Simulated assay, not measured.
Amino acid sequence: MSNENAVFDCVRELYSLHEERVYTYKLLEEGHKIYLSTAPNYDFARFRRLVHDVTAEFKRISDSIIAIEKKLRLNADSAAIADIIHNLQEDEKLKLKLTAKMQLAKQEFVDCKSDAKWEEVNAIKHQLNTVVENINGHLSDIRNEMDSY
């Protein structure tokens, strides 16, 4: 198999893993909505199980993407793509942290209904949107790099 084919295979796998990550985020979001709907007597045990399962899935996906990055670093021709993947992973870490922060802020808003909490939710939402734009930019950058192959 040529190096070019190996790079294409790695990028194809990366996009597949990214789709899995998007789906996992959707599961987490839906689970959190259900969790919030159980207020004020939250079903924390069920939500904790979901978070545990989702965390394991995020780790599996992240480990697989890191392995792709390492594989691409073995060849100087694909180092630029590996760099973009590294930046993608950094933004994905930030997205996960902001998602957790958002979930806590939403729960606090449900509990106290204060304008300040709603403003915090909106501020985090804005940060998340920016990170998602960056992630989409990285994915676009990878496509652009692949055009040179």
Score class of each variant (00 low, 15 high):
Leu96Glu: 14
Val51His: 05
Ala67Phe: 08
Cys112Val: 09
His86Thr: 10
Ser140Trp: 11
Phe8Arg: 13
Arg49Ile: 08
Ile85Lys: 01
Asn122Asp: 12
Ile135Gln: 00
Ser62Ile: 06
Ile65His: 03
His86Cys: 06
Ala79Leu: 15
Ala116Trp: 01
Ala100Glu: 14
Arg143Ala: 09
Asp53Ser: 10
Asp111Ile: 02
Cys112Leu: 10
Asn129Asp: 15
Arg12Phe: 11
Leu17Asn: 04
Leu94Gly: 00
Trp118Arg: 10
Leu104Cys: 01
Tyr25Phe: 15
Glu92Gly: 03
Asp91Asn: 10
Ile135Phe: 08
Leu36Ser: 01
Tyr15Trp: 08
Asp83Pro: 05
Ala100Leu: 15
Leu74Thr: 14
Asp83Leu: 09
Arg12Val: 06
Lys117Ile: 03
Gly137Ser: 13
Thr55Asn: 13
Tyr23Lys: 11
Val121Lys: 03
Ile65Asp: 01
Cys10Met: 08
Ile34Ala: 01
Leu128Ser: 06
His18Gln: 15
Glu30Phe: 04
Ala80Lys: 05
Leu50Glu: 02
Asp9Thr: 14
Pro40Thr: 07
Asp53Gln: 08
Lys101Pro: 00
Thr24Glu: 10
Gln89Ser: 09
Val110Asp: 02
Glu90Ser: 04
Lys95Glu: 15
Leu17Asp: 01
Lys125Gln: 12
Asp141Lys: 09
Asp77Tyr: 10
Ile34Lys: 07
Lys113Phe: 09
His52Thr: 14
Gln107Thr: 04
Val54Pro: 00
Ile85Ala: 01
Ile66Leu: 13
Ser114Glu: 15
Glu108Trp: 00
Tyr42Trp: 01
Ser140Pro: 05
His18Asp: 15
Asp115Ser: 13
Val11Ile: 13
Lys125Thr: 11
Ser78Phe: 09
Thr99Tyr: 06
Phe47Arg: 00
Thr38Glu: 08
Asn122His: 10
His32Tyr: 11
Ala76Tyr: 12
His32Trp: 02
Ala79Met: 14
Tyr42Ile: 03
Asp111Glu: 12
Trp118Lys: 13
Ile65Ala: 04
Pro40Tyr: 06
Val22Gly: 02
Asp115Phe: 08
Ala39Leu: 05
Thr99Cys: 05
Arg12Met: 12
Leu72Asp: 03
Lys33Pro: 01
Ala79Tyr: 14
Ala105Val: 02
Gly137Ile: 05
Leu17Lys: 10
Leu104Met: 03
Leu72Thr: 04
Ala82Trp: 03
Leu128Pro: 00
Ser62Tyr: 09
Ala76Asp: 13
Leu96Thr: 11
Leu50Pro: 04
Ala100Ser: 13
Ser37Val: 01
Ser78Gly: 11
Ser64Cys: 05
Thr38Trp: 03
Leu96Ala: 14
Ile34Arg: 02
Glu13Gln: 12
Glu20Lys: 09
Asp111Ala: 15
Trp118Phe: 13
Tyr42Arg: 00
Val110Ile: 13
Thr130Ala: 12
His138Leu: 01
Thr99Trp: 07
His86Ala: 09
